[in-house]
């Protein structure tokens, strides 16, 4: 019971912190002082106090978009263990539900963007789903490889079962982790796929889809982005952290530390790389699929 409570609290409260860490890392690389690490929380608080302006051309889908997205992501997050903190929800085959909850969240984001009737947002939606077509098989292949490795089909079994240093199977886990990292960057609209800071309509993907949202709805969208990063990041962290049987607090610290490191790494990737030209993005995503696929082959051998 206590564990479930801690799991839910972590899932609900902590995600924006890591966006703050990414921003701080990028600021450090650029030689700026940067905004405080807690700035995403302040932004959310500010946005939730505001009023929404809703275009008269939109219908209920537009307003449902952010709500459904965030609830899907929260639901998906319930199935992910945070290192040794067991998930609140776990059953046989929940990884399929997990992947499709992410898909449903994406569907409602793009539907809400199309609802506004703006051509730019339509472009953003088209790009988002195009790249998702390539990112999703990669994620499935990665999960498939890990499921084969652990012999279970529930996310909690897979993610708590895999850890680095597990005998001879270090190699494929590394490959899968590399693939999942690329997918993490792509799914969260980070460089090299999309730039979360860009405001040039022709090149935006995620940001362009949410242009018409304001106030609490924009807040929900930003919270959803933080949530998605946290969920997919903890999948990666669960895989990469070594096995341990420490005290609860040490394990919690390890998890948060690893998430922080992952965020710093994301920040470094964003600082040292330019984003890819749009036509090259499929190459990157196919590479992620191939990495996961080769990992699967190595395990299945």
């Amino acid at each position: 019971m206590v564990q479930i409570l801690i799991h839910i609290l972590l899932l609900v409260i902590i995600p924006p912190l890591f966006l703050g860490i990414i921003n701080k890392t990028k600021a450090c690389f650029a030689g700026r002082k940067g905004m405080p690490v807690l700035q995403p929380y302040y932004d959310l608080a500010k946005l939730f106090r505001k009023k929404s302006v809703i275009s008269r051309t939109t219908g209920w889908v537009f307003q449902a978009g952010p709500v459904v997205t965030v609830s899907c992501l929260l639901f998906a997050g319930l199935m992910i263990p945070f290192y040794r903190i067991n998930p609140s929800l776990s059953f046989y085959g929940d990884l399929i539900l997990f992947a499709y909850l992410l898909g449903l969240a994406r569907f409602f984001t793009t539907a809400a963007a199309l609802e506004t009737g703006s051509s730019f947002e339509g472009m953003g939606s088209a790009r988002e789903v195009t790249f998702a077509c390539l990112a999703e098989p990669g994620m499935f292949l990665g999960f498939l490889a890990l499921a084969r490795l652990t012999g279970t089909l529930s996310l909690s079994g897979i993610l708590t079962g895999v850890s680095l240093g597990a005998g001879t199977l270090l190699a494929p886990v590394l490959l899968v982790a590399a693939g999942l990292f690329i997918i993490l960057l792509a799914e969260n609209c980070r460089i090299p796929v999309d730039d979360p800071n860009t405001h040039l309509e022709l090149t935006m993907i995620h940001e362009v889809m949410v242009l018409d949202h304001s106030g609490p709805m924009l807040g929900l969208i930003q919270y959803g982005a933080a949530l998605k990063y946290f969920i997919l990041g903890s999948v990666l962290v669960d895989i990469l952290l070594p096995d341990s049987n420490q005290f609860f607090l040490i394990e919690l610290g390890l998890f948060l530390g690893a998430m922080g490191l992952l965020s710093i790494m994301t920040g470094i990737v964003e600082s040292v790389m330019a984003r890819l030209p749009m036509r090259r993005v499929p190459n990157l995503l196919v590479a992620a699929c191939l990495l996961c696929g080769v990992g699967f082959l190595l395990i299945g051998r």
């Binding site: 005998g167 001879t168 270090l170 190699a171 494929p172 590394l174 490959l175 190595l298």
Partner: peptide, 8 residues
């Protein structure tokens, strides 16, 4: 293990 990691 290390050998296989390197080869991967």
């Amino acid at each position: 293990t290390y050998l296989n990691t390197f080869l991967a």
